[in-house]
Each structure stands twice: as structure tokens, then as C-alpha cells.
Design a binder for these strands. Sequence first.
DNA 1: ATCTTTAATGCAATTTTGTCGCATTTGTTA
DNA 2: TAACAAATGCGACAAAATTGCATTAAAGAT
Lengths: 124, 124
Amino acid sequence: MKRRNTPTKEAVLEVLKTAGKAMSQDAIEQEIHMDINRATIYRVLNRFCEDGVLHRIVADDGKQYFALSDKNDNNKVSDNHFHFKCLACDTIECLPNKVSFTVPNAYSVAHMNCVLTGICKDCS
Amino acid sequence: MKRRNTPTKEAVLEVLKTAGKAMSQDAIEQEIHMDINRATIYRVLNRFCEDGVLHRIVADDGKQYFALSDKNDNNKVSDNHFHFKCLACDTIECLPNKVSFTVPNAYSVAHMNCVLTGICKDCS
DNA sequence: ATCTTTAATGCAATTTTGTCGCATTTGTTA
DNA sequence: TAACAAATGCGACAAAATTGCATTAAAGAT
């Protein structure tokens, strides 16, 4: 199942690169100045996550947000970092701070989803 | 707006105490052997969260899970702890490990939602 | 340049999760 | 026991995300 390049994929990536923060499907759709179906955007985003191009954050509103992964991001943050959701400007960004944790014996961790909520530097 | 005691509230609390882990509305409904409306359970859960009896966790499936808060739990975990979702048995539990983090200057944190996903001790 | 294969898309319907308005019921207190 | 307001049931609704299916269009082969 080889991937193909399509205008939609390029547009989605472009939007996320420009924004420099995590975005939800509907926010992405609003920024793309093309008429692309909702379901298609979801499929593109899911494929990017599968391929490691994006990573998915689930905020405490239950919505999925998507942000560039390391390999496609010029910043040096890794994927196991904290995310910060600002209550004022309602944006989600990747913090440079890594999540450090220990788990009790016999637990193994495959994935993490850590979101801090509060007021960001631009809104304080 | 003083709270009243109702059978529904008692039943919900009882289920959560017995389970000893975080549960979603539908899981709670299944465990309650009474015919209680979905919306009512949601309202009870939300009120409990307002009152600090429960705390709410949003897992990476986007669903809300509810667990007893400190004051009502005999365990000594505090509310700013990691949660662990097991991929095998699909349960969510509160880990004793506290979340420690630092944020960049001028950020203030009001709330956190941290869920680790993997295999729990019972399933490994 | 054209054909072929199959990934990608559009559309509509569906599922899931959670909330809300409103009439009715029921705790609680006087 | 009466009265007030919180709690409930019911139905409708909203938002987020997925899925089936027919159609379109990349990408490699001819």
C-alpha cells in the first residue's frame, strides 16, 4: 500500500507547518483554501499519524489535535513531551519539556498523552 | 443549590468504590442494576466532579472516565497523578506516581490530564 | 502518450459521546 | 403535611469521528 502524493496531503502539511502548533481537523479545514471533504482530511491525518509524520494529541475536550512529529519538525522536541492548552487563546502547543515518569513494576508503557491546561505566555 | 441524596448518586458512588478504578458513563451504567437514564448518570457524574468527589480523566479514546478523588478514596494518591490505560484489559487506573513538570516562563498551569497507555501488571 | 492498477476522494449515512430544555418527580425543610 | 427547588426521565440535539461504496486520479508499466 504505497502512499501517493495528493494536493490534499500537501495542503494539510503546509497548514500545520505554517501554524507551528497542534490543530484539530476543523481548524485545519478552515485554513485550507480548497474545498476538501471532512472525511478526507480525517483520513489524511490518520495516515500521517500511521506514517509518523504527525502525532496525535487528545485534549481534555475529547478532541483530537495533530502536530508535526520530530522528523518533520525543525524544532528539536521529541514526541514524548508535554502539550499545553491555553484556556485564553485555545491553542495547543508542544512544550519542549519532556515527560518523565516511572511506573510500578510490571507495567510497560507504549504511549503517552499528557496535556497541561492553563494560560500561555502570550496570554499572561 | 444544596445537594440532595438520591438512590442514583449512591449507586454511582458504590459502583466506583467497588471497581477501584476509573470508569466511563456506559461502564457505570452497565454495573448499576437499576434503570437509570443516561443523562441522569452524566449529571450525577458532573456534579460529583464539581463537588470534588470524583475527578475526570480524558483518555486517548476521547472518552471521559471518572475516578474517586482523594478525599473519598482510602488510597493516598493525589489528583495530579498519572493515569494508566491498559491496552489489554482496557481499564484505567490511577497510578501512585505524581506528575512532575516544569513549564517555560510565563506559563501557568491550572489543570493536567496525563494518561500513559500500555500493559498493566495484571496483563503482563 | 496511453493503459492499468489501486490508493485517494466525495458523499451520505452512521456511531459514539455528551449536553440541553422541559415537564414531572422526589428530597428536604419548615 | 405542604412548599420549594433539586433531581430525574425523555426526547431532541450537537459535535467528533468513522465507514461503505461508487468515483476519481496518482504512479508505474507498456
